[in-house]
Each structure stands twice: as structure tokens, then as C-alpha cells.
């Protein structure tokens, strides 16, 4: 199934892309998808306390099961304000 992975801020710099489509097996979780990105791009959490995840613009955990055309966002702890 096709899903879109979006990377923000320092995670975008580490991934080397801001948005990319991935073809992943059915029932893939958000955590599986992060491991797949790390296989290709190396350590995408270097220097971070944690990596935050969101599916279709809502926060989620690593065990969230993805569906076709989901947008999974990977980003560092927020620092706005």
C-alpha cells in the first residue's frame, strides 16, 4: 500500500526529504514505517529526546496501524512560541 511520509524540521534534515511516498505492506504500523525510513536514511533521531508521530494531522503512537494513502508525519519535539 502507498503511504506518504512527511518529515519536519531537524528530522527533515536527517531524512533528506520533506515528503516522500513509500510502498509498505498491509498492516504496517507507524513504528514499522519509521524503521523503514531509518534503514534508508540512517539515524533519523540523532540528538533528539524523542521522535513525535502524527497520522493525517493527529498525534499517534508507534503501534498505530497505517492504511492506504495515510500521511505519516515524523518530527522532533515542538519548539514554537
Amino acid at each position: 500500500m502507498k503511504i506518504k511520509i512527511k518529515a519536519c524540521a531537524s528530522v527533515k534534515d536527517l531524512c533528506g526529504f520533506s515528503e516522500r511516498e513509500f510502498d509498505l505492506p498491509e498492516r504496517t504500523t507507524a513504528g514499522d514505517a519509521v524503521r523503514r525510513v531509518a534503514q534508508e536514511c540512517g539515524d533519523i533521531t540523532a540528538g533528539l529526546d524523542s521522535l513525535l508521530l502524527a497520522v493525517n494531522e493527529e498525534y499517534c503512537r508507534g503501534d498505530r496501524v497505517l492504511a492506504e494513502n495515510d500521511v505519516l508525519a515524523l518530527f522532533p519535539p515542538v519548539s514554537g512560541g
Binding site: L52, V78, S79
Partner: peptide
């Protein structure tokens, strides 16, 4: 509002 913005809104500063 300001405390929650700083915790949950996906904005980053460089």
C-alpha cells in the same frame, strides 16, 4: 494557551 501551544503545536524554531 501559551503553555499548551509550546507543548503540542507542530512548529519549530531554528
Amino acid at each position: 494557551i501559551i503553555d499548551t501551544v509550546k507543548k503540542t503545536v507542530p512548529i519549530w524554531k531554528k
